[in-house]
Design a protein around this nucleic acid. Structure first.
Length: 319
DNA sequence: AAATTAGGTTACGCGAC
DNA sequence: GTCGCCAAACCTAATTT
């Protein structure tokens, strides 16, 4: 028996849940000789051949390592799959640097070879129709995700939305950047981390109206049911930008809760509503906050803050 | 700083073509 | 599809409290 099969045997023993199953007795013939066939991924009875479970997925690494170096050496695992690269990060990367894996420079002859390989690699990767389109869109999504300081997950989601739009020929006739922007905009809202169109405009390469237009068509054509933005979702972000306490945050959320129930929200800009609620909450909590500062953060004018503030104040006071 | 006011801009829905 | 129009929300800017 070779060394590697010895190691495999030990791996099986280390999989505690698998071992627990393997000590169970077979429901068919009644004796206790159920074993794990880790090549086929099945639990089988040695006596009668009955398969208890198949298609088991081994959640562990397929090798064992006891030191960090060993783990580095044995790992054949690459980067995780990501939606944010047009090939989901699965094709080969050829580094731009003319050096081998140890960092030594390549000979002139080798450099020529690598250069040719790079050319072919690029052609292979981008050749199919639509791929160029996708690549541009995804790098755009990637860029804006970082610029807006959004978690990677949101970018991944936006990429999925964009792929679907592309499949359904919705990108035709409008700009790639526009559809990419609105994909991210939709992903933000779906994840409950809304960014206003104004914020998008500052990082996008297209106008606000264009983002809005492709947003509309995406929502309508793809049957993405979008609920209107809940102003409450802006509260945590605005409060932390203004370094306001937890009390203000809670109070503001409650105010929005109530003004929403009273039907004060329809048609009004959610950032304005959130801003006014925070302003009102800060006053009630005796925290320092001018209209001009909150207007700045919420990206509406002081006038809007005032108007919403008055409405909310009237509602709070009558109770 | 906050409020008030006036006048201009914009996005949106709707119907006509 | 797009043109034209409307009403509401918001904006800017000037002025007052």
């Amino acid at each position: 028996m070779s060394e590697s099969s010895l190691r495999q045997r030990r791996d099986v023993d280390e999989r505690t849940d698998a071992r627990a199953e393997s000590t169970d007795s077979c429901p068919e013939c009644g004796d206790g000789s159920v074993i794990l066939d880790d090549v086929r991924g099945e639990l089988v009875c040695q006596g009668c051949g009955f398969v208890l479970r198949n298609r088991l997925i081994d959640p562990g690494a397929e090798w064992s390592a006891f030191t960090h170096e060993e783990s580095q050496e044995k790992s054949r695992v690459g980067s995780p799959m990501t939606e944010m690269l047009h090939d989901k990060g699965l094709t080969t990367e050829i580094h731009w640097k003319n050096a081998d894996a140890q960092g030594r420079p390549l000979s002139a002859r080798k450099q020529e070879t690598i250069k040719r390989l790079r050319t072919w690699q690029d052609r292979l990767r981008i050749s199919q129709t639509g791929e160029r389109n996708l690549q541009l869109a995804l790098s755009e999504i990637n860029r804006m995700t970082s610029a807006l300081e959004l978690p990677q997950q949101v970018g991944e989601m936006a990429s999925v939305i964009y792929r679907q739009a592309l499949e359904n020929n919705l990108v035709q006739g409008r700009s790639i950047e526009g559809v990419a922007s609105s994909s991210l905009y939709i992903a933000c809202r779906k994840r409950g981390l809304p960014r206003s169109l104004d914020e998008f405009e500052t990082v996008a390469r297209v106008e606000r109206s264009e983002i809005a237009r492709s947003y509309r068509s995406l929502v309508v054509q793809q049957d993405l049911e979008m609920k209107p933005i809940d102003p409450k979702q802006f509260v945590p972000r605005f409060c932390s930008e203004l370094e306001l306490g937890q009390r203000v945050k809670r109070e503001a959320t409650e105010i929005l809760e109530r003004s929403g129930d009273a039907g004060l929200h329809s048609g009004k800009s959610p950032t304005g509503l959130a801003g006014a609620a925070i302003y009102l909450a800060a006053r009630r909590c005796d925290e320092e906050l001018t209209q001009s500062r909150i207007a700045d953060v919420a990206q509406v004018t002081e006038v809007t803050i005032r108007n919403r503030y008055q409405e909310q104040l009237a509602l709070i006071e009558q109770s």
